[in-house]
Design a protein around this nucleic acid. Structure first.
Lengths: 70, 70
DNA sequence: CCTGACTCGGGTAATTGGGGTG
DNA sequence: CATGTCCCAATTACCCGAGTCA
């Protein structure tokens, strides 16, 4: 894999608690979104979920811009 | 500081019940305000609304300062 | 190695959303 | 015209004990 494909997306991984704070919801709710396919879930060897900052930001943006629909 | 890339990621969000308590009205009424365009409505993937604390505070302040704004 | 804080998992309670009505 | 209350279904919030992360 010395491929220069540079898949280096500067994606910081956020914990459920951090994402929950951004949406003002419970960490369990964020877990449900991941389970519903709303967010990609990265799993640590221990089973903990981790979310990509870019994905969370994108989802947050889509929910934030919902005020100008129509 | 124009900071065009940093604006939609640091706002406290309130639940309809919390906003309703601040205005002393029913959550249903707050929902109608959002539907009328008086409040920006942030929707969770599940369909629940979330309101910006700054927007609610501003609306509350305008109602508290001037009840005859016409 | 141990500690502190957070997360996981399932289940239940409370709240929310939408429509229709007064 | 705006607000309050009813129904139902869906979503979200909090409880416990155990494990994992840093």
């Amino acid at each position: 894999m010395s491929a220069p494909t540079v898949s280096r997306t500067q994606d910081s991984l956020l914990t459920p608690g951090q994402v929950a704070a951004m949406f003002h919801v419970d960490p369990k709710t964020v877990t449900r979104w991941a389970h519903a396919g709303r967010l990609g879930s990265l799993r640590t060897p221990g089973g903990h979920r981790r979310f990509r900052e870019s994905e969370v930001l994108q989802l947050l943006d889509s929910l934030t811009t919902e005020a100008s629909r129509h």
